[in-house]
Design a protein around this nucleic acid. Structure first.
Lengths: 109, 109
DNA sequence: GACCCATGTCGACAGTGTATGCATGGGGTG
DNA sequence: CACCCCATGCATACACTGTCGACATGGGTC
């Protein structure tokens, strides 16, 4: 069983975007942040599905915000990264950092 | 077609491990490096398959080394990351760095 | 040549990445 | 207040990645 899975690349980015957006983080805002960073289109569905899966794994929690005033729409789903989520983010980063170590200097060839 | 895919987490790690091992990089050595870094078991198959896929995408090249002396075995398959591979590694890292920006400082809450 | 070890390759299946399209809930407008 | 519209969210589908276990191959050793 791969129950010790690493976060995927996109999952990491979504979690990080959630943290960056902060307080009222919800899908559309996260999406925008992602697109701005990666400089390319990201589909809404991709974000929602990833958010769902992350939540099922306990890496983030969500709460339904009581509908925004102004232009209508369904109540927003606010998400927040859990400590566990933060921990996993840091874990992957540590691995990558460790593997990058020493590689920046010598750009072979 | 998702032909503009990001490197997955594991793919990144494999590519980085290849670069770290350097010259005679081949699966078992890469595997060992990976396990040491992640501090957990990684199956040999996972490494080989990933190496294959990465090669098919042109992110690394391989050459069959004329069998090692000493204790027998099949000829080793030496791999090397291509410039394109390096570029993609840097791209993902840039995105992640960008998203991490500002999150280390304030761990309030 | 029987056995063993180091490598490499296959095939299968779960998990992640991504897109398209449907569902829902209010706000305007006539 | 019926309808259209827009902002969100959700569901489905399918390709790509992550992982494993088992099988294949090629040389040493005895």
């Amino acid at each position: 069983m791969g129950r010790q899975n690493l976060l995927g690349s996109f999952e990491q980015m979504v979690l990080l975007a959630v943290r960056q957006v902060g307080e009222g983080a919800y899908a559309p805002a996260i999406l925008e942040r992602l697109q701005a960073t990666m400089n390319r289109k990201v589909s809404r569905g991709a974000v929602y599905v990833t958010l769902d899966r992350l939540q099922q794994r306990g890496l983030l929690t969500s709460s339904s915000a009581p509908a925004e005033p102004g232009r209508g729409g369904r109540p927003r789903r606010h998400v927040q990264v859990t400590p566990e989520g933060i921990q996993q983010l840091e874990e992957v980063r540590a691995y990558l950092d460790s593997l990058w170590d020493g590689l920046d200097a010598v750009q072979e060839d």
